[in-house]
Design a protein around this nucleic acid. Structure first.
Length: 431
RNA sequence: UCCUCGGUAGCUCAACAGGCAGAGCGGCCGGCUGUUAACCGGUUGGUUGCAGGUUCGAGUCCUGCCCGGGGAGCCA
């Protein structure tokens, strides 16, 4: 029995006979010569079967293979410039685990509806595999950077008793006869956690029952939310630009092959290093008006506005000091100018929009209590949150980074439904 | 919720002004020792989203419904 190896490490076995276990991605029939593309989850490799060099039944099996049939292939690894990837396997034996009939997805063009209905199979294709491996790297980079910069992972509940931010729609569920809601953010709990642990982050799925039907929205998406005690708006922006730059450079370094499969132009990504440009909301409004937008001060930016702003910069751009009225109740107002608050969003280049939202939180008990009243929030649900300002309050800040939007930007894909294995969207919960 | 585009073979799409429902891919059969979503020849394949209506005749026109794409608002 020859050694079972993974395609990822095939280059280490040139000249040796090895065994691969995987699936037939495609077959090209040349009569007395068969080209098989085998995938095993770690990569793709061409395997070649010559009729002359094989027992008749082995060649016959190779010639009978259909797309996505599961196989165990043994052969000699050789470097060959004619093979995609530079290596190929000269087949010496082949066992079929299952011969597949009528695999639905051809390696041709398909429509969105068909592909989404077959998402469980679509993820096997090269392009989807590459996108999801970039996602893997983004998530690893997030954890590595935070873990090595004094943050501790302190996860927050998914089932919550009340809205974190009262405005957006919540998914309601039954909690032993009481209504409970799927979380929209772990931030409020993070604020409790920093008073115990200093620097924390939570990382998990987030749910928004918004009836949004755009390329930038999912109803279930993943968000990492760091929160820092003794931190103001300006400290926060420095953390964010270090963090995002690390993620980008790490993906460029370790997922170059995947970005090549995706034909991503990486020249702009390579420039993503601190510092990022900083633009106040006032400055952004001025910039928009210069470009001919009829924009009223006090409104939040829509997608076309975000794109117009980020197009002016090569790197991601911070927009800070939004009007207090368009941000959440806990945002710290700017001293001496209460109509704006110490919030900051990070807009990705190339039209990928807001990937981070965050800011400095209100530390003062009286002011926070007043805001809860102004926003008509149920006081009793926030009693524990007010305790954080009663017992040792400190200036603090935090942010949330959307994983799928970040992956979409880095991979250059058009729609973020491809940035998660099984997207949950409006009117779609299958498969 | 609103605006907009669409639904025809397993898939991607044609079908003029209402007049025999077609092609490519896939599948199947045959050919080829260097293919890269191979190529060549043959062949198979249809409740035109659903329900009504107009008409000698409807994929095509009308009404309602269902499903999907793109966008807006809101947000990461």
């Amino acid at each position: 029995m020859t050694k079972w190896v993974y395609i990822r490490e095939i280059g280490e076995y040139v000249g040796q006979e090895v065994t691969l276990k995987g699936w037939v991605y495609n077959r090209t029939d040349k009569g007395k010569l068969q080209f098989l593309v085998i995938r095993d989850g770690t990569g793709f490799i061409q395997a070649v079967a010559f009729q002359k060099e094989l027992p008749a039944e082995v060649f016959q099996r190779a010639a009978s293979l259909t797309q996505e049939s599961s196989v165990v292939v043994t052969g000699i690894v050789r470097a060959d410039p004619r093979a995609p990837g530079g290596y190929e396997l000269g087949i010496t034996n082949l066992e079929i685990i299952q011969l597949v009939q009528d695999y639905p997805i051809a390696l041709k063009e398909h429509g969105v509806e068909f592909l989404m209905a077959n998402r469980h199979l679509w993820i096997r294709t090269k392009r989807q595999h590459a996108i999801l491996m970039v996602r893997v790297e983004v998530i690893r980079a997030i954890r590595d950077w935070l873990d090595s910069h004094g943050f501790v992972n302190m996860d927050t509940p998914i089932l919550t008793p009340a809205a974190c931010e009262g405005t957006t729609t919540l998914f309601e569920t039954d909690y032993f006869g009481e209504p409970a809601y799927l979380t929209q953010s772990g931030q409020l709990y993070n604020e409790a956690n920093i008073m115990a642990f200093g620097r924390v982050y939570c990382f998990g799925p987030t749910f928004r029952a918004e009836k949004s039907k755009t390329r930038r929205h999912l109803t279930e998406f993943w968000m990492v939310e760091p929160e820092i005690a003794f931190c103001d708006l300006y400290d926060l922006m420095e953390v964010e630009e270090q963090f995002v730059s690390y993620i980008v450079q790490r993906v460029l370094e370790r997922r170059a092959r995947e970005l090549e499969v995706l034909e991503r132009d990486t020249s702009r990504l390579a420039k993503v290093e601190p510092p990022f440009p900083r633009l106040s909301y006032d400055g952004a409004v001025e910039l928009l008006r210069k470009q001919g937008f009829d924009f009223r001060w006090g409104e939040d930016f829509g997608a076309p506005h975000e794109t117009a702003i980020s197009d002016q910069f090569e790197k991601p751009v911070f927009v800070h000091h939004y009007p207090t009225q368009c941000k959440a109740f806990y945002m710290q107002p700017e001293p001496g100018r209460p109509e704006v608050c110490r919030s900051v969003d990070l807009l990705a280049p190339e039209g990928y929009g807001e990937i981070i939202g965050g800011g400095e939180r209100i530390a003062d008990y009286e002011l926070l209590e007043q805001r809860i009243r102004e926003h008509n929030l149920p006081r009793e649900a926030y009693e524990w949150y007010l305790d954080l300002r009663r017992y040792g309050t400190v200036p603090h800040a935090g942010f949330g980074l959307g994983v799928e939007r970040t992956v979409s930007w880095l991979t250059g894909i058009h729609h973020l439904r491809e940035a998660i294995p099984f997207p949950r969207m409006l009117e779609r919960i299958y498969p």
